[in-house]
Design a protein around this nucleic acid. Sequence first.
DNA 1: CATGCGTGGCT
DNA 2: TAGCCAAGCAT
Length: 293
Amino acid sequence: MVASSSSLNAAVVDWYALHARALPWRRDSTTAWHVLVSEVMLQQTPVERVTPVYEEWTSRWPTPSALAAEPSGEAVRAWGRLGYPRRALRLHAAATAIRDRHDGVVPEDVDELRALPGVGEYTAAAVAVFAYGHRHAVLDTNVRRVLARVFDGTALPAPGLTAAERAQALGVLPDDRSTAARWSIGVMELGALVCTARSPRCGVCPVREWCRWYDAGRPAYDGPLRRTQTYAGTDRQCRGRLLAVLREVEGPVGGEVLRAVWEDATQRERALDGLLDDRLVALVGDDLYALPD
DNA sequence: CATGCGTGGCT
DNA sequence: TAGCCAAGCAT
């Protein structure tokens, strides 16, 4: 396997050079701040839905300082329907930290990146690699799936990221920084376009000849079950409904407007309390609510 | 390590 | 059609 790594790497790098999508965050003019914005937006949200919001955000807030100068509620409003709006709040907090602690420049160091709100292991590595060209293993769900199939012969990786996976990813990472960066983005793109979760296109896969999963006849996933997330009727849906009201109006809204969008009073109040706790919503008067400052 | 956290499209 | 899935993070 080690002996074939370089051809595997080359196959992916070459494939990416031919098939990479022209995504907005892959332009020559893209800054590290833009990369950070795109990565946070892409956490659990599909590319097609991120694209228009990314364009609006980067045009309106071209630098961390520009975003930090605005109320956090504006970030939440501009987040639109991307989902998980705490990400907008954290991006605003990250922008503030970058302005205050890093002279307005997105840090290159993964540990400094990880210290930013909303930036975890994946996002820190992604910014270090895609924005700055550093050499790090980038392990998102796409990469994990490709590696699981090629090296372990399993349809999907286990639910949690393991130390063994990190070691495996480092083991196949090319030594040369520039090549490593192209491999990292390439294997991720391969997972997004070819080695997909539902219907992998093995017929056009550039690494099929090295794939244990393909060799084994593409056996179904038989590992521990992932818990399926219900949504209808949950607190999450209720929170989403309440926040949508506040996003769509200019100023504060009275509690009666919020009461109108969710029947169950107990759940509605629990959800609103949660939003207040999370600082996604602010209480600005007697029974009066608004997006935060 | 398990859980909560939005939203919408696809099979 | 009801899950399943989508460039995770924080606690």
